[in-house]
C-alpha cells in the first residue's frame, strides 16, 4: 500500500514537470491559426532565416567536431597536468551568460583584433556574417559534444584498444576501428545535442551578427517590434522544424548505431 502511494506521489510530481514542459509548446501551436501558419511558411524572410539557422548550426557542428572529438578522446584517455583546469574551461560556456560570451567573442573576433584582421586579409569576416554566427553557436554548444563524446570514450574498455594494438594496428587505426565506433552512440548523441543547442542560440549571436538574421533573433525582433501575436507564428514554425530535425537525426543516428552494433 505504502509503495503504491509513493509511486502515485512520484507520478504526480513527474507529471507536473512534464505538463510544465509541454503546456507552453501546445499553447503556442494552438494560438496560431492555419492562415497564419500558411502565411509564415510562405514568407521568404522566415524560410531564409530558418534555412540559415539550420545549415550554419549543422556546418558549425561538423567543423568544430573535427577538433572536439579528438579533445574528448584525450580527456577520456590521457592523464596530464592541468586536466581539471581544461575540463573547467570546456564547461565554461555552460555557466557564463551567453550575451557575455557574445561580448567576449566580439572582443576576440572584431575587425580591430589580430584574428579579425587576419580573417579580413583572406576575405573572411566574422561580424555580421554566417561565419560569426557559426563561431558563436559553436562557442556555447561545444561542451555538449565534448562531454558526451568524452563519456562515450571512457566507456570503451581500454583492453579492447590494447588488443587491437597487439594485433598490429596503428594508433590511428585503433581510434577509427575500435574507439570511435564503440563510443559512437555517445558521439552522435553529442553531435545532435550540439546541433540542437546551436539552433536555439540567441544571446551570443545577437552580439556578433544581428544580420543575417537567424530565427531566434527574428522571433525576438518581431516580438519587440510587432508584439506577441506576430512573433508566435514564426516561433511555432521554428519549434516544429527543430522538432522534426531533432527526431529525424535521432532516428538516423539510431539506425547507424544499430548497424554498428
Amino acid at each position: 500500500m505504502q509503495k503504491s502511494i509513493f509511486g502515485f506521489i512520484l507520478s504526480i510530481l513527474g507529471g507536473l514537470v512534464l505538463l510544465f514542459l509541454l503546456a507552453p509548446l501546445v499553447k503556442i501551436f494552438l494560438s496560431v491559426t492555419p492562415d497564419d501558419y500558411f502565411i509564415t511558411i510562405k514568407d521568404p524572410e522566415v524560410t531564409r532565416s530558418i534555412g540559415l539557422t539550420l545549415w550554419v548550426s549543422l556546418a558549425s557542428t561538423l567543423a568544430f567536431s573535427l577538433g572536439a572529438i579528438p579533445l574528448a578522446y584525450l580527456m577520456a584517455r590521457k592523464s596530464f597536468p592541468g586536466k581539471r583546469l581544461i575540463q573547467s574551461i570546456i564547461d565554461l560556456p555552460i555557466v557564463i551568460p551567453h550575451s557575455a560570451a557574445g561580448i567576449a567573442l566580439l572582443g576576440f573576433l572584431s575587425r580591430d583584433t589580430t584574428l579579425g584582421k587576419l580573417a579580413s586579409s583572406v576575405g573572411l569576416d566574422f561580424i555580421g556574417h554566417p561565419l560569426g554566427i557559426g563561431v558563436a553557436m559553436a562557442y556555447v554548444s561545444l561542451p555538449f559534444l565534448i562531454n558526451a563524446a568524452r563519456n562515450g570514450f571512457q566507456m570503451v574498455p581500454v583492453r579492447l584498444e590494447k588488443a587491437a594494438k597487439v594485433l598490429g594496428a596503428s594508433p590511428v587505426r585503433v581510434f577509427f576501428t575500435i574507439s570511435l565506433p564503440l563510443a559512437g552512440r555517445s558521439v552522435i548523441s553529442g553531435l545532435v545535442m550540439m546541433f540542437a543547442r546551436g539552433l536555439s542560440e540567441f544571446g551570443a549571436i545577437v552580439i556578433i551578427a544581428y544580420y543575417p538574421m537567424v530565427t531566434p533573433i527574428m522571433i525576438w525582433e518581431r516580438f519587440g517590434t510587432f508584439g506577441l501575436k506576430y512573433a508566435q507564428p514564426v516561433a511555432a514554425v521554428f519549434i516544429a522544424v527543430c522538432l522534426v530535425f531533432f527526431v529525424l537525426i535521432r532516428m538516423l543516428a539510431k539506425e547507424k548505431l544499430d548497424d554498428i552494433n
Partner: peptide, 13 residues
C-alpha cells in the same frame, strides 16, 4: 607476440 587476454577482449561491434 600474440597476446590472448583473460576475457578474450573480442571486438563486440
Amino acid at each position: 607476440f600474440g597476446l590472448v587476454f583473460q576475457d578474450q577482449a573480442l571486438f563486440p561491434h
